[in-house]
Design a protein around this nucleic acid. Structure first.
Lengths: 139, 139
DNA sequence: GTAGGCCATGGAACCGGTTCGAGGGTCAAG
DNA sequence: CTTGACCCTCGAACCGGTTCCATGGCCTAC
């Protein structure tokens, strides 16, 4: 089987070589064999591994969590139940953030409409003092 | 009129004294008079100003943007229209983030259900290799 | 006069993932 | 033998808002 250079892996996975080395450093990619020149040589499935990491990141997992999970797995202790529980917490977090952002969006829409009212009554070049209106809406 | 100490302002506005000094440093609070001991003495309406800043932050404005706006206003150039346009962009950003998070949430829900399927078939103490399933869902 | 609470300063740490920089090897093509 | 595209390491910068640190002055009360 042909082993890949770091740049090939990076390219195929759509990340930078720095990112690959970073992943190794924090332990989500394991140390890999080196050729005579000291270059890292990766088995092809590493690309999938990197993509999997990226996907886990977008789902809200952190590199630190992934590294802990992989370490635990390498130690022969299947972390599946913990992983499942962790994903559950991620879901709760995402839902919280959506809720918070939805509130923000509503507030922003309100703010915009009140600003537009105010701007209609403010001649060009005058001060509408928009930010001063921010407080009344708070309550 | 009684002037407030920094701790009093911080307390009333629900932030730390460090935050107040930070706001001064980045220019969202203007430099304020000092008493004989070198202590900052704030007019009471500063508390409202700090609350306004916090509210603007929750709406997605950055300290840097606020500082620019305040500077422009202090220079006699009403930034109202620009501020309005900026808020519009903030709204768009918030909506983008909500959309992104909604996608993530759906993916997470899918992931959880497929993991649960898999866990049902995996005896305790065995490896379910949950993360390996992450890629198929991508496409 | 000393303890405890407030205030001052400038600079650094924190979060997490990524990128960049300096300084230096390896290798193939022209 | 030089050019250019790779690769290596280790450490630091970046984003933004907040907090923390060391070091020191001020003020009140016991």
């Amino acid at each position: 089987m042909e082993l890949l250079l770091i740049g090939e892996v990076a390219n195929a996975a759509g990340v930078s070589v720095d990112t690959i080395r970073h992943y190794e450093r924090v332990g989500v990619l394991r140390d890999v064999a080196r050729d005579a020149s000291g270059y890292r040589r990766y088995p092809p499935h590493t690309v999938e591994r990197v993509r999997m990491i990226r996907r886990a990141l977008t789902l809200g997992f952190t590199l630190d969590e992934l590294s802990r999970i992989f370490r635990q797995r390498a130690a022969g202790k299947p972390p599946c139940r913990e992983v499942r529980a962790l994903a559950d917490r991620k879901l709760a977090e995402v839902e919280e953030r959506i809720a918070a952002l939805t509130t923000v969006r509503a507030a922003l829409v309100d703010t915009l409409s009140s600003w537009d009212d105010r701007l209609r009554d403010t001649p060009d070049g005058a001060f509408a003092n928009l930010f001063e209106t921010l407080m009344e809406e708070t309550k």
